[in-house]
């Protein structure tokens, strides 16, 4: 193991779980003119973060290696610490960026600063599908994303993903990036005891300057507008009448 060239064969795998690295789009307010108010949208745990954490824990448990949390921006870093991660790193001044490659660059720099990392596990966010793959590209590591679960076996990663009606089991050498897509919502949120314990766990705060990087969007925003939605035909009022109208419309449309 220790295939990143910095460590001996006896070293254990170090797994990084990246979490809370994007703003919560659902908290953004869309105005009538199509502009967006992001003021209430904080960095938040994405819907795939719990599944990614499960996979990261499984890998760490299988290898006996360390598990390190990594988060960026203004979110509460205790999310992972309250869920069994012993230590975390937060890049506190990472801005919100349009360019997925810039977000990936912040994560990549933080991974290099953590050092001796074998595996990065990250939620394969539907909203930011370019981040996990570009993170791998920037590090020059292989990646598999859209996976269901992962563990470690014989010094390699064992990955399960669904392709059509089949499960594929893949074997991957480290170092590598794994993007996990949620098959389910989080099963059990931590209780008060875990939340209190999380406050005592070590959190290393870093800045972009500490990492020696600057990030900026090389893309400008000309504004936003409401999508030209298909003219949805809505039937309401009396259910019997609405149902008859709908069935009639579907027949006229050839859908029935």
């Amino acid at each position: 193991m220790g295939t990143n060239g910095k460590r001996g064969l006896d070293d254990q795998m170090k797994t990084v779980i990246a979490y809370k690295w994007a703003r919560d789009g659902e908290r953004a307010a869309v105005r009538e003119d199509g502009s967006v108010d992001w003021r209430n949208a904080k960095m938040t745990a994405g819907e795939d973060d719990p599944a990614a954490l499960s996979a990261a824990k499984a890998i760490a448990a299988a290898t006996g290696g360390a598990l390190v949390g990594l988060t960026i921006g203004d979110g509460d870093a205790s999310w992972a610490l309250a869920r069994g991660v012993e230590q975390s790193v937060s890049v506190t001044d990472a801005p919100t960026l349009t360019d997925n490659a810039q977000t990936a660059a912040v994560l990549a720099a933080a991974v290099r600063a953590i050092g001796n990392v074998d595996v990065i596990v990250i939620g394969d966010s539907e909203q930011h599908p370019g981040v996990p793959v570009t993170l791998a590209g920037l590090l020059g590591w292989p990646a598999v994303v859209g996976i269901d679960s992962a563990t470690a076996r014989d010094g390699r990663l064992e990955i399960v993903r669904k392709v059509g009606d089949d499960h594929q089991v893949l074997s991957l050498a480290t170092p590598a990036v794994l993007g996990v897509a949620a098959l389910s919502a989080e099963e059990s949120a931590p209780g008060m005891k875990e939340l209190l314990a999380a406050r005592k766990r070590p959190l290393t705060k870093m800045t972009l300057a500490d990492l020696g990087i600057t990030v900026a969007d090389a893309v400008s925003n000309r504004g936003s507008h409401l999508p030209a939605t298909k003219p949805v035909r809505v039937f309401d009022g009396d259910p019997t009448l609405a149902a008859e109208q709908l069935v009639g419309a579907l027949r006229a449309d050839g859908a029935l």
């Binding site: 360019d99 490659a101 990936a104 370019g130 590209g137």
Partner: peptide, 24 residues
């Protein structure tokens, strides 16, 4: 496309190329 394998190709190429990466 959004297909996982295609995105892995895109991420590797974009990182080497220094591209801005835009989703959706």
């Amino acid at each position: 496309s959004t297909a996982p394998a295609a995105r892995v190709l895109l991420g590797a190429a974009a990182a080497r190329r220094g591209s801005v990466v835009l989703p959706a």
